[in-house]
């Protein structure tokens, strides 16, 4: 448990993080000075379209970037320690698992097919909780029960191929819970699941958040899921943060033109197709990203300044810096 940290206090703070990837075609400027604060006890949504940098952000926090990645600047403070300055050995011993754990989109490729579900969860228990075999087994069974897997004894003995997708994903959470981490990073955890299983999964996360004060960074491209589960939301576009707000403020009163466009193109906000909004153009390639605000070529409010000066995150008055937006002309957006 995080001692001395109250609910709502910053648990992880990302400051001016800049990351490039060296590729054969050139340097991909994947993250362009992003700022993000995840607070204790919240479910923080990180949303954006393909290639916006949301997964790169999460992988960086755990030091899991590929060899061709170059961190060009910035800090990731986890409880005031800079993760970017930490040695690999220290990261492994003190951060991964103990403090921050992660679940990925595809539970099939995240589980080892030759070990049973129970054995895989037990590995986390032995590493992070209790080395005694008998007690470890009991802890595993409790964890499997906690994620609402029916008949934990039975699931313990099952191999991944004998479990359904939803069950596999729950085994993944059990594994993460067994580490007793404080921060869970979930990268598109329900994208491969059916809606009914997704609903069950979301419920499990919500309960864990309330009972265990678990903090979750929830990465997804699905606006409906974000509105369902998140307390606060950060919207990314082409490697830049465009807006952060409480989930209600974001959906009811989005300030950035991109956020607005995104929300109004989601089926369900408007029912008739003719009312759907579209964002002209396509997401730019980050080898040669647009100058200034990276959204400006697609933005109907763009002016000369937008292509010249990169906007910084500024607070919306009356929101105590809880609603920040990165746009020169956000006050003109209707």
């Amino acid at each position: 448990m995080v001692e001395g940290l109250k609910l709502g206090e910053p648990l992880m703070v990302i400051e001016d993080l800049k990351i490039d990837f060296l590729t054969e075609e050139g340097t991909v400027k994947a993250l362009d000075s992003i700022n993000l604060t995840v607070r204790k006890g919240e479910i923080h949504g990180l949303i954006g379209e393909t290639g916006c940098g949301k997964s790169v952000t999460s992988l960086t926090t755990l030091g899991l970037l590929d060899d061709n990645a170059r961190i060009q600047g910035g800090h990731i403070y986890y409880r005031e320690k800079d993760l970017l300055k930490m040695k690999e050995k220290k990261l492994r011993r003190h951060i991964r698992g103990n403090e921050i754990s992660m679940i990925f989109q595809n539970p099939v490729s995240s589980l080892n097919p030759v070990y049973t579900a129970g054995e895989q969860v037990r590995e986390s228990v032995v590493l992070y909780q209790d080395k005694n075999k008998k007690r470890a087994r009991q802890i595993v069974l409790d964890e499997l029960d906690r994620v609402k897997l029916p008949d934990p004894e039975d699931v313990y003995e099952k191999y991944p191929h004998e479990l359904s997708g939803g069950m596999k994903q729950r085994v993944m959470i059990a594994m993460m819970l067994a580490c007793n981490s404080n921060l869970l990073i979930a990268d598109e955890p329900t994208t491969a699941l059916d809606v009914s299983i997704q609903a069950q999964f979301i419920k499990v996360l919500k309960v864990l958040q309330e009972k265990n004060d678990l903090t979750i960074l929830y990465i997804t491209h699905d606006m409906a899921v974000v509105s369902e589960i998140c307390d606060r939301v950060t919207v990314m576009y082409a490697g830049q943060i465009v807006e952060t707000a409480d989930v209600h403020d974001l959906f009811k009163d989005p300030k950035h033109p991109y956020t607005r466009g995104l929300i109004h193109s989601v089926p369900g906000v408007k029912t008739a197709i003719e009312d759907f909004e579209t964002i002209p153009g396509t997401v730019p390639r980050l080898i040669n990203p647009p100058s200034g605000c990276r959204f400006h070529p697609r933005c109907e409010y763009a002016k000369k300044k937008c292509s010249k000066v990169k906007p910084t995150l500024e607070g919306v008055p009356g929101k105590n810096d809880k609603h920040v937006v990165s746009c020169h002309f956000w006050e003109e957006v209707e």
């Binding site: 997704q198 609903a199 509105s227 369902e228 369900g268």
Partner: peptide, 10 residues
């Protein structure tokens, strides 16, 4: 079970 893009609808 279908999430709606509206934080008031769960």
């Amino acid at each position: 079970s279908v999430p709606q893009p509206d934080p008031d609808k769960k």
